[in-house]
Every structure is written in structure tokens, then in C-alpha cells.
Write a protein that binds this DNA or RNA. Structure first.
Lengths: 216, 216
DNA sequence: CAGCATCCGCTTTGATACTG
DNA sequence: CAGTATCAAAGCGGATGCTG
């Protein structure tokens, strides 16, 4: 990216991560850990191959990404965030927080990947009754299941199936988020194609606050 | 900006504020409040006039910026952040936090505006001896003076001259920041062209932590 | 197949000039 | 003051090809 040439911390940050796709690459590495080139391409639908290669080089030079040549048996390269790159996590979290209200609408053209939801879910959900025994919810949407586990006051989200889920939700991500964030009642979510197996009462346990975008 | 077409909160945010110049426009409005078109141009050196007009239109449509046609006597338009726009403040703060280590170097081509420093200073400085009487430091760099005031544990930064400064620092912003963040001793700052009037001991009072970028 | 590099048409940006 | 108009240059998107 062409520098803004401003002696300003905001501009200096954007000189490094302000390019198109750059922060989404960081998101991929932050959410999934070490990734192969191909994994990144899969997590960034629509990116041009040469752009991904360019960005990775730029991020490497900026000290945000490290390239790890795996030893002979595994003939592949892994891309990681450096410590400096991991310091971008709070920035990503703020982008999630600000962008969440925009997810009330899901365009038909929007790609879906399960791991994109993990950060948002963990950031927004709260365990409202930490003294009761933990609950486990499995969400089946996108390309792989996501599991929510209440754990002393917070809610953990991780990729992968639940061991013994109290509730399983399947369907489009949009109504499932509406349900989790308390925007939708179960019947409305079901009308939107969500199917549930288990005890829907656990939803009250971890409902997250969800504000609509306030303009004007 | 062309949409990323991802059902992801990070991508949704970047769809709105990820364009080149966009977050810097928000920075201007966040730091300075209502701005005229000309004020914005001055605070965004290098932006093309048509781009500024485009971005303002887009931000207005996204509910981030409000345009206020001033009544007849003041024949001008003022641009403001909406409440939704002000919610971007934490994001700007994170950009400041991450970008601050990059300010150890100041390129000769870097433009300087005093108000850009206000956010960084307020975010990083701490009043280490809140029980003593407040101190006031005037910084003369860029286009106008900035005043720091210790106030019960925090440090306030604002544009404008101090009333009765305990210390006045003049010179290039880079060594002045080095001094304030404890990276430089007074003699080194002086060697870099900084001149001080008053009691340098007050610097210990408000020194901020400043970590270098950690790569690898 | 993984990890790019090259080419090409299109869109966005930058610089400057001009206008109500 | 608050923009529009114009045009060249840079950046991006999509396809394809190359190399281990």
C-alpha cells in the first residue's frame, strides 16, 4: 500500500494493515492458527492468487506473519502470525463488535465459513447462570460444526462437534445468530429453516446482547 | 468498496470502513468534531478532492456521517459523526495502540498535525502520582499547541495553549514523543532539537509505557 | 497438488483544473 | 467554500500457466 505519509499512529497502522484483504488474512491466521496457502485461499473466497502471495510477502516483511517451511516428510509451507501479529487481535475484536449489527442481513451472495463465527460468538455470548452445571450447544452451519460451552461466566466457542450437546441447532447462520443473540424466538427461527434437537431452554442461559445499528 | 461477500463481522465492517482514506476521515471527525470540507482536506493531506466527496457520500449512506447544512448566516456545511460513527472510537483507539510502536521512525515526508497526537497521548500517558497537585505541559509541535493536564490518575490531552504550564516542550514531534514515552532522556531529546522551558521533573509524573514492535 | 508468476481488462485512485 | 470534471497511473480480479 502506498503510505499515507502522516505522522499519526492510525495512519501508520493503516500503512501496514489497511490494504484490501490484509486484515482478512490476519483474521484467518488468528482464528485458525498456522495455515497453508491453500487453506488461506479457501478462507478468503474471491481473492486473486497473486494478491494473496503479495500480501503474505508484505505481511512477512512488516513482521506480522512468519513463514515456516515444514520439514521434508510434510512437503508444505505453514503461515503463522508473529507475536506482533497476534497483537492485532484486539483490533479484530473491535471490527467484530462494530460489524455484528451489520449481520442482521445476510446477502445470498455471502460466503459462509464456520470459523468466522467463532470470534463473534465468543465475544458476544455470556453465561448468565455460571453456578449451574455447564451447557454445551452444537451449531451446524457452514462447512463444519461449532461448539459452544458455558464455562464459569463466559462462553467458549470452538470448531468441531460437541461431545454430548444439550442442544443442536442446524440451518442458515443468520437465523441461528438471531436466536443466540435473542433477536429471534425459537418459532421464528424454525420458520426460517432452523431445526433444533435437545433442550431450547439452554438458550436463555447464554443469550448475548445485540444492538441494531443506530444511525442519525 | 466492492463487498467481500462474506458472512463475517470483520468483513462486514471492512465493507463499510475498509476503503482507503475512510478510517482517516472518521479519525478527523472523531478528534475534531464537526468539520467543514476544507478542514477535512487540510487534515488529510494528499487526498484527492473527488475521493473525499465520494467517501463522505458513502459514509453518509452507511449512517456513519451526518451532513449539517448550517443556517443562512454561516453559509457552510458541517460534517459530523453519527452515534453509530462514534462507536468506531474503540476501533480507532486500537489502531493507535498498534500503530504507536511504528512512530519511532518519522519519515521526512510525513505530514504533522497536532490533533493527530492528541488521541495517542491521552491513550498512553498515565498520571503516576495522582495525589500531588495537577501538572500542565504545553507541547509546541505541528500546527498548533497541545496541552497535557494530569487529572486524578489520568492525563487529558487537548488542543490549544496551556494557561500556566509547568513545562513547555518545542521541537519535532518524534523526539518529544520519545521523551513523553520514556524512550529518550532529556539530553538526547535536546540533542534532537527539542527545547524545554520549565521543570523537566514533571515528565516522570506522566511517563507512558512504550513498547517497540516485537517481530519474529 | 501446493505455491506461486504472468498477462490482461477493468476499476479505483491521484493530481490538477475548473465551477456555482 | 464545496464540490465536479478529466485523465493518467496504479491497483485489483480473473484466468491461465509454470515449477517443484
Amino acid at each position: 500500500m502506498r503510505s499515507y505519509d502522516e505522522y499519526c499512529a492510525v495512519a501508520k497502522s493503516l500503512d501496514v494493515v489497511g490494504d484490501r484483504w490484509t486484515l482478512l488474512i490476519v483474521r484467518e491466521l488468528a482464528l485458525r492458527g498456522g495455515c497453508r496457502y491453500t487453506d488461506l485461499r479457501n478462507g478468503l473466497p474471491g481473492i486473486a492468487s497473486n494478491l494473496l502471495a503479495d500480501r503474505l510477502r508484505e505481511l512477512e516483511q512488516a513482521g506480522v506473519v512468519r513463514r515456516e517451511e515444514a520439514p521434508p516428510p510434510i512437503a508444505t509451507t505453514l503461515f503463522h502470525l508473529t507475536p506482533r501479529g497476534r497483537e492485532l487481535r484486539p483490533l479484530l475484536d473491535e471490527l467484530v463488535r462494530w460489524g455484528l449489527p451489520l449481520m442482521v442481513e445476510q446477502k445470498p451472495s455471502d460466503a459462509v465459513r464456520s470459523h468466522w463465527l467463532v470470534g463473534a460468538l465468543e465475544l458476544m455470548l455470556i453465561d448468565h447462570r455460571p453456578h449451574e452445571s455447564p451447557v454445551e450447544i452444537e451449531i451446524r452451519t457452514g462447512d463444519q460444526p461449532v461448539t459452544l460451552e458455558s464455562a464459569d461466566g463466559t462462553v467458549r466457542a470452538r470448531l468441531g462437534p460437541a461431545e454430548d450437546p444439550d442442544l443442536t441447532l442446524s440451518g442458515d447462520p443468520n437465523p441461528i445468530l438471531g436466536l443466540l443473540f435473542g433477536k429471534l424466538e425459537l418459532v421464528d427461527a424454525q420458520a426460517a429453516g432452523v431445526s433444533s434437537v435437545g433442550d431450547p431452554a439452554v438458550l436463555d442461559r447464554i443469550n448475548g446482547a445485540f444492538q441494531s445499528p443506530t444511525s442519525a
